[in-house]
Design a protein around this nucleic acid. Sequence first.
DNA 1: AAAAATATGTCAGCTTCGTTGACGCATTTT
DNA 2: AAAATGCGTCAACGAAGCTGACATATTTTT
Lengths: 160, 160
Amino acid sequence: MPRQMSQNAAKMELLETPMRNAGSIDFEVIELLFFAYRDFVSDPDQILVKSGFGRAHHRVVHFVNREPGMTVADLLETLQITKQSLARVLKQLIDSGYIRQVAGPEDRRQRKLYPTRAGRDLALALAEPQSRRIERAFEGASEATRESVKRFLRGMQTEK
Amino acid sequence: MPRQMSQNAAKMELLETPMRNAGSIDFEVIELLFFAYRDFVSDPDQILVKSGFGRAHHRVVHFVNREPGMTVADLLETLQITKQSLARVLKQLIDSGYIRQVAGPEDRRQRKLYPTRAGRDLALALAEPQSRRIERAFEGASEATRESVKRFLRGMQTEK
DNA sequence: AAAAATATGTCAGCTTCGTTGACGCATTTT
DNA sequence: AAAATGCGTCAACGAAGCTGACATATTTTT
């Protein structure tokens, strides 16, 4: 086989054309979601570093504040992680005084989770820059537009 | 101090009221973004497990396919990670034949990255379920609505 | 009353993917 | 010739997920 042909064969395996929106594949929105979420979660990180916590703590403190009295099982369902994974961060949040547990009044096996005042304050501090970013992204948008965006985001969720 | 007062004092530190959309904090959209992204990235995971890759490989293979010829530095900028972190996954993708490197034609220190046919196929396979999910979320939406959503997502990005 | 199921906690070990810091090599720029 | 740049790599570490096994308290079922 001549050298030139080998070169071409080797080159053939390299694709030089960009993968563009085509067929039914929406690469543009895929990337928009990636960048939007990357920057969205980067906001709270500075605050979290000061407390010695990470993103996992953020999620826990957020949802417990949103629904005080939720059980450990509820939280596992919401976060879609294992109890062993939750245990670490939850324990740290309890030990640090941001969250407390109360035995369920009906079913005493349950551990109902509540934020302390410090836990509420932390959740608010973390939500603030995220909310500002959202407001900036909605800048000038009508109420109908805002509803469309929410509808889209709801539609992105797996229906359970 | 009477026992009753101590009990109340202890109870005081537990907040039982849900943290609701109030002031300027938009908890609803914060959560919608969390759930939307959680489910959005869960799609490719099954496919990735079969190839022995993770989400980091997904991102690399995606962007190299979107912009063949991008350099290592470009990729680091896009992903916002360190070169040591990228090195691991990039090496695996190169060794597995999904991506190849070519010395830059002008600056030969650069490594331009290109997908192979297998790399293109993998990127397409990973994008497919995500794109289907996006289409479902847009179901029945007008072109104007779609543009509004994209505008919102662009607005969520940190401007560089 | 006994047995089974449930809710939670915990131990141990593993994986992925991010980090910092240091250094080497080839190449380009000054 | 010296300095800066692009990239690769070694080593050590941390955050946050995972599986599997087992313990304890409590509730439900038999």
